[in-house]
């Protein structure tokens, strides 16, 4: 924390904190709440959520009105007719390729580069908040954004799916049927797993966002990172690299739909996610804390 900051934190409610920042303020969620209000209030984010929600509804309606036919669509598509909860899963598997990373890329682009571009970053830092604390808040809001995006897809899909196909037992990949109640739990686990992966992508995005003052550049750069990862993951000649790629185990969420669930790939995916979060958040911190805020 800088010296100027500790002077500014002097206030009536000051508690004797070790570095001069009152405990109540360090735990305060005011900054986070204002950040979330900003994210939720942006028209482009609202439109983005609408697109995310439209995909599962579109899938459900398309499957409903078409006659059942043989053929290989996206994963889990053929299972929709037996259980409505396959709609959110099919939608997630479709949107995980582009739409969900794009949503994170938009939020990440706005997070630091967007503020710098608007010239609001320096005002934010005079509030007063430490840069580390601002970066934590920005990352937590990205995390919430990831959960938010996935939840919108899953809720829209679940509502459309249950309305059109009902709540039959769910067919697992292993050929057994599980009750609707445990199917709901499986879908929640799938959603959480995907949200963690997107949150790790958010850490990469946050770092890129501290490198530039153009939000669009940060968004595009993160999309390039994502797509390059998918491409690298599909080239068998560099299979030694695959375990280190963020997206490598993203599609492993299907392992949660086996009976019993197969945890090996899920655990590997979570380990990679965690490693990306730690490394890229620290990179963002190293860059942001020493950065000159010129606008």
């Amino acid at each position: 924390m800088s010296a100027a900051e500790s002077v500014l934190t002097d206030g009536p409610q000051r508690v004797a904190g070790s570095d001069g920042v009152p405990l109540s303020r360090r735990l305060s969620t005011r900054l986070l709440r204002s950040e979330l209000r900003l994210i939720a209030g942006r028209r482009r984010n609202q439109m983005g959520l609408l697109v995310l929600a439209a995909v599962p509804v579109f899938i459900a309606v398309a499957v409903r009105i078409s006659s059942p036919r043989e053929g290989r669509g996206p994963d889990f598509l053929s299972s929709i007719t037996s259980n409505g909860l396959f709609v959110p899963i099919a939608a997630l598997s479709v949107e995980l390729g582009l739409f969900l990373p794009l949503a994170i890329a938009m939020l990440a682009g706005d997070a630091v580069a967007g503020e710098a571009n608007l010239g609001t970053l320096r005002y934010l830092l005079t509030v007063p908040v430490g840069r580390t604390r601002l970066l934590v808040t920005k990352y937590v809001s990205l995390l919430i954004g990831a959960v938010w995006g996935v939840a919108v897809v899953v809720l829209a899909g679940a509502i459309a799916g249950i309305a059109l196909f009902g709540t039959g037992p769910m067919l697992t990949l292993s050929g057994t049927e599980i009750s609707f109640g445990s199917a709901v739990w499986r879908v929640v686990l799938v959603s959480l797993y995907i949200a963690v992966g997107l949150a790790a992508l958010g850490a990469v995005g946050l770092f890129i966002s501290t490198l530039t003052e153009q939000p669009l550049a940060a968004t595009v750069a993160l999309m390039i990172f994502t797509i390059l990862s998918w491409i690298a993951d599909s080239v068998p000649q560099i299979s030694w690299l695959h375990p280190w790629l963020l997206v490598d185990q993203w599609m492993a969420f299907g392992d949660l739909l086996r009976d019993p669930p197969f945890w090996d790939n899920i655990a590997q995916g979570l380990r990679v996610d965690l490693a990306y979060v730690v490394v890229f958040w620290l990179l963002a911190w190293a860059r942001f804390a020493g950065k000159d805020i010129t606008s």
Binding site: D75, F76, S78, S93, L173, S174, G175, R258
Partner: peptide
């Protein structure tokens, strides 16, 4: 025996007198 594929699974289940081969890809 369950062969784990990406979003698919093939099982061979032997239980007493029955042997089942299950393929999730084509149900």
């Amino acid at each position: 025996l369950a062969l784990i594929g990406s979003n698919g699974e093939s099982d061979v289940i032997h239980n007493g007198m029955d042997v089942w081969l299950w393929s999730s890809a084509d149900k």
